[in-house]
């Protein structure tokens, strides 16, 4: 008690600057939890305006011709599921609804492949529940597996894709035997990497430059990354090395928004101009999911952050002013 009475009395400015850490964490916990529950109860849809780089990514993905091949390079684990998870779900929905074929590989971490399998299983369950045909491994998609030396693999892909993946096998369900992935209906027409429609990388780290430097001139590369990596990768979009970019959680919500609203013939998001849309919507389908489920919570947390920064700065200003006096 003696310590309390002897301690110098804090000014308002100092009090504002020294908010208890545990108390701040508690407020964040309560605000985020409440926002998630409210979103779940009321199915809240926070409006958004897609950025040009997300629009470009959607235009490419939405226009994959039926049977066109997309490589999905997954480089995220559950630690960045909050952003990459929603992006993966949106990507799979777009590809499966467009009838595209895709092959999944990873060179970041073996776990990524198992996580991607989980997402494919989940979207397949959703399709089954909606009465749509399931995507079948070998016929519609392939798992190429984990590559321990990604840069060298990509260098070989640049020269000869068949050489790079020649040892990769998958089970043919008709015979139950393992066969070369190039005998599967997914990759049988791919002779060169140019035969692939797009290469999509989902990552929480800086893997994209390795891809762009090696095969960026041969195939359209789209990057789906976390908000941390976005500022670095925007340069690659501006220089034309990336054809599309999806920025973290907000990018994921933008993709979901574009799936819901589409881009009309005049290039307007959600417009109704007559003619063939630049990138059509998926009306009536489940478009809003993980991205939108987190979006209100993100806004609440960011509001809290802005408030905390403002309070801290006001405190600093008050302290500095009283010192000057």
């Amino acid at each position: 008690m003696a310590e309390q009475t002897d301690a110098p009395k804090k000014s308002i400015g100092e009090i504002l600057q020294s908010a208890n850490r545990t108390f701040l964490y508690l407020i964040l916990f309560l605000v985020v939890s409440a926002s998630l529950v409210v979103t779940q109860l009321r199915k809240v849809e926070v409006p958004t305006r897609p950025e040009p780089y997300t629009i470009e990514a959607y235009k490419i993905l939405r226009n994959v011709p039926e049977g066109g091949v997309v490589i999905v390079d997954t480089g995220f684990t559950n630690s960045s599921r909050g952003e990459n998870g929603g992006q993966m779900e949106a990507l799979l929905r777009i590809l499966m609804r467009s009838g595209a074929k895709f092959a999944v590989l990873s060179w970041v971490e073996p776990q990524c492949i198992e996580i991607a399998r989980g997402f494919i299983r989940r979207i397949n369950e959703e399709r089954r529940a909606a009465g749509e045909p399931e995507y079948r491994e070998w016929y519609d998609y392939l798992i190429l597996g984990f590559f321990p030396d990604g840069p060298t693999m990509l260098q070989t892909v640049h020269q000869n894709v068949r050489e790079a993946w020649k040892t990769r096998q998958a089970t043919d369900p008709t015979t139950g035997e393992k066969r070369s992935v190039f005998e599967s209906p997914v990759l049988d027409r791919v002779q060169r990497i140019e035969d692939v429609y797009a290469y999509v990388t989902l990552s929480a780290s800086g893997t994209m430059p390795t891809i762009v430097a090696r095969i960026g001139k041969q195939v359209k590369v789209i990057s789906m990354i976390t908000g941390v990596m976005f500022p670095e990768q925007l340069n690659y979009f501006k220089s034309g090395q990336l054809k599309g970019l999806v920025n973290g959680l907000s990018g994921c919500v933008e993709l979901e928004w574009l799936m819901e609203k589409g881009i009309d013939a005049q290039g307007v998001v959600g417009g109704n101009a007559p003619g063939r849309p630049v990138a059509a919507a998926f009306p009536g389908a489940k478009n809003f999911d993980r991205g939108m489920a987190y979006y209100l919570a993100l806004h609440s947390a960011l509001t809290l952050l802005i408030l905390a920064v403002a309070v801290g700065n006001v405190g600093m200003w008050l302290t500095n002013r009283s010192r000057k006096r």
């Binding site: 011709p65 039926e66 049977g67 066109g68 091949v69 049988d188 027409r189 791919v190 002779q191 060169r192 140019e194 035969d195 692939v196 429609y197 195939v219």
Partner: peptide, 14 residues
């Protein structure tokens, strides 16, 4: 010119 397989179905634009 690309080497195309005889069984190549439609689609797969690159």
């Amino acid at each position: 010119p690309r080497q195309k397989r005889e069984t190549a179905p439609t689609g797969g634009d690159s």
